[in-house]
Structures are given as structure tokens and as C-alpha cells.
């Protein structure tokens, strides 16, 4: 039996994590299991005051249980890859691991009043997006699809927390993983 693992680094609020976990459980056919993950301080880059996303993925690859279909991690840390100023998340395309950062999904990051509802909604969309990459899906041209590329929160807010028909069909045909 293979499980869809959802893990969180220690600083992540339980409420947000649970909503992401439940979303993955309702979306995918595989049973979902929780995984405790270590702090990602090792990935901190003092020069950029951000965390190296690729180092986090390497850690996840080491932590990934043998019975994992996929492992999706949630962290509060602001992630980056060297060539870009930031990433909302990162995944192994067609692999087993993915990570979503909540840092830039929060309203307060942009100087606005906190909104737990907005955060949960954005986190669900990005969790779908990054986990979609692990199933081999690439960015979708349908702007309302969860797999469309979002380079800012306006884009995230503009898309649905759901696959478009084409991406859903692809997941079903190639992976058979949708509920």
C-alpha cells in the first residue's frame, strides 16, 4: 500500500497544515499520512535572508518514507532558487517530493491585515500545483486551472483550487490518482 504523505516543518500552524492535508486527502485516491519534518535552518542563506529550496528538497528526499507515493511538505520559510528572487514552492517534476512555502501566501507579507481564510485558500491551490508537478503535470495555459503558473498572489487568487478538465483527464489517464 502506498501513502500520500503530507508533512510540516515545526513552525507551521496546525490549522493551516490540517486544511492542506485534508485537501490532499479529498483530491487524491491514495490514503494520506502525516509526517513530522525537521527545521530547515540548514538551508538558510544569510546573504539573501531566505531558504534554499533545493536544499529543502534534498532533505525531503532523505526523509521520504519507502511507502510514500508522494511527500508534500509545508513550511513557513521564504524559499528561493539561486536564479530567482523567490519561489512559492518547488517540486521534483514526475518525482516524489514537493514543498510549499506559506511565507508569501500571507496577506501580512504585503503589509495587509492577516486573513486565515485567504491563506488556507492560497495554500490549497499551491499544494495542488506542486503535487501536480510530482505527477508529471506541467504548467497549464488555462488561467483558472490550479496548474497555471502563478508568479504573484494575484495570479494565485485568480485561479481555482481545482484542475481544469484537461489536467484532470491527464492525472486520471496517466496516474489514476484522482478520487
Amino acid at each position: 500500500m502506498k501513502y500520500f504523505y503530507v508533512g510540516a516543518t515545526p513552525e507551521v500552524e496546525r490549522g493551516v497544515f490540517v486544511s492542506v492535508r485534508d485537501r490532499m486527502a479529498s483530491e487524491y485516491g491514495a490514503p494520506v499520512k502525516e509526517l513530522r519534518l525537521p527545521d530547515v535552518q540548514f538551508a538558510y542563506d544569510a546573504g539573501r535572508k531566505q531558504y534554499r529550496s533545493m536544499d529543502v528538497l534534498e532533505m525531503l528526499a532523505r526523509q521520504c518514507p519507502a511507502d510514500a507515493l508522494k511527500l508534500l511538505a509545508v513550511t513557513e520559510r521564504d524559499l528561493f532558487v539561486p536564479v530567482l528572487t523567490f519561489v512559492f514552492g518547488q517540486a521534483q517534476l514526475g518525482g516524489r517530493i514537493a514543498v510549499v512555502s506559506l511565507a508569501r501566501l500571507r496577506q501580512e507579507f504585503y503589509g495587509l491585515a492577516p486573513s486565515p481564510e485567504v491563506l488556507v485558500e492560497r495554500a490549497a491551490k499551491e499544494a495542488l500545483h506542486e503535487s501536480g508537478h510530482t505527477f508529471g503535470l506541467v504548467h497549464c495555459t488555462d488561467r483558472s486551472c490550479a496548474m497555471s503558473l502563478a508568479t504573484n498572489v494575484r495570479h494565485i487568487d485568480g485561479k481555482q483550487a481545482a484542475w481544469c478538465a484537461a489536467c484532470a483527464a491527464l492525472l486520471l489517464r496517466t496516474q489514476g490518482v484522482l478520487r
Binding site: A91, V138, H139, L149
Partner: peptide
């Protein structure tokens, strides 16, 4: 690798 991975996600 980071730029390549990002572009691959774009298809």
C-alpha cells in the same frame, strides 16, 4: 539546475 527545473515545469 534551478533554472532548468523551473523551465521544465513550464513544459
Amino acid at each position: 539546475e534551478s533554472l532548468a527545473a523551473w523551465l521544465r515545469e513550464d513544459g
